[in-house]
């Protein structure tokens, strides 16, 4: 059966997109993210190379040849910023999907069945929440070692409690709604109630959370790299560039500034879109920030 008419779902998705884009700040953010994504995945075709070293031009300021200057190995900072976007966006996307894939079922099960399942799962969530996000990620890196997948997993696991809580809150509020009770009165099974009725009606807060958490994930990935435990070099990463740039503050001040601009704009864009989504989907004027979103 088709629980949701595809045309109806598409129409409502199109309506949401239109209303988000009607907010100027959100439209600008979407445009910026689209541009940086396209750029990051086509930069190689443009002849940009983040690894090529120019020994004659180390730690140079912006110039015609190197608009963003060069780093301590004579590499093009502009190229590294653009390739850094690729690292940042893929890690964040993977981390958010991982967090949702673990957190949403956890919250669904905890909220729907209650009882000991609820107590056990939520205790795990509480414990994860008791450590600041960066601390949890650091502890995980300490165990997993330093690699790109370790960074992804560490960042992703810190997002699990958020999704678990959002999904559980959704279940609890939807279970009070009569249409969920109605499905049970028709004789539906538990899994029908959970996956055919509750889950489809929970997509909006989960989607909003995914966008908001993308900004948190990008920040956390950069923070780990900045602390020297993120994705290992020579893969270009904004956090790593800020870390090295800080060493050369006196020699090349733009080195530490320009990657930060890219990082900040990306984070702000996700945050802005997240708030716009929340106002469109939930009719809320303010997206209440996740206290969990420690940014250290």
């Amino acid at each position: 059966m088709t629980p949701v008419l595809p045309s109806a779902a598409l129409a409502s998705a199109a309506r949401v997109v239109r209303r988000v884009l009607a907010q100027p700040a959100a439209a600008v953010s979407v445009a910026f993210l689209l541009a940086i994504t396209v750029l990051a995945f086509t930069a190689g075709l443009l002849g940009l190379d983040p690894l090529e070293q120019d020994m004659l031009a180390m730690l140079e300021g912006p110039s015609a040849a190197y608009p963003f200057g060069t780093d301590e190995l004579g590499r093009d900072i502009l190229a590294r910023v653009i390739f850094g976007a690729r690292t940042s966006l893929t890690t964040a996307a993977g981390a958010v999907l991982l967090a949702a894939a673990i957190g949403v079922p956890m919250g669904l099960v905890a909220g729907f069945f209650g009882g000991w399942r609820d107590v056990a799962l939520m205790r795990v969530v509480d414990l994860m929440l008791a450590l600041p996000g960066i601390m949890l990620a650091l502890a995980l890196i300490a165990v997993l070692g330093r690699s790109q997948s370790a960074a992804l997993v560490a960042v992703g696991l810190t997002g699990v409690p958020t999704f678990a809580r959002v999904a559980r809150a959704q279940v609890l509020s939807l279970r009070k709604r009569d249409f969920v009770t109605a499905v049970e009165a028709f004789g539906a099974t538990s899994s029908y109630s959970m996956f055919r009725t509750i889950l489809p009606n929970s997509w909006s807060p989960i989607l909003t959370q995914m966008v908001v958490l993308s900004s948190v994930a990008i920040l956390l990935e950069a923070a780990l790299a900045f602390l020297g435990v993120g994705i290992p070099p020579p893969t270009p990463s904004w956090g790593e560039m800020l870390r090295t740039g800080k060493e050369y503050l006196y020699d090349a001040p733009t080195y530490a500034v320009l990657p930060g601009v890219a990082l900040t704009l990306t984070i702000l864009s996700f945050d802005t879109i997240g708030r716009a989504l929340s106002s469109v989907l939930e009719g809320r004027d303010t997206a209440v920030p996740q206290p969990r979103a420690e940014r250290a």
Binding site: A9, R177, T181, A182, A185
Partner: peptide
């Protein structure tokens, strides 16, 4: 045996035609 609910705004799944 079937049930009819009080609040017509809450008893219909908003995702279903």
């Amino acid at each position: 045996m079937q049930y009819v609910f009080q609040d017509p705004f809450s008893s219909l799944n908003p995702m279903l035609s």
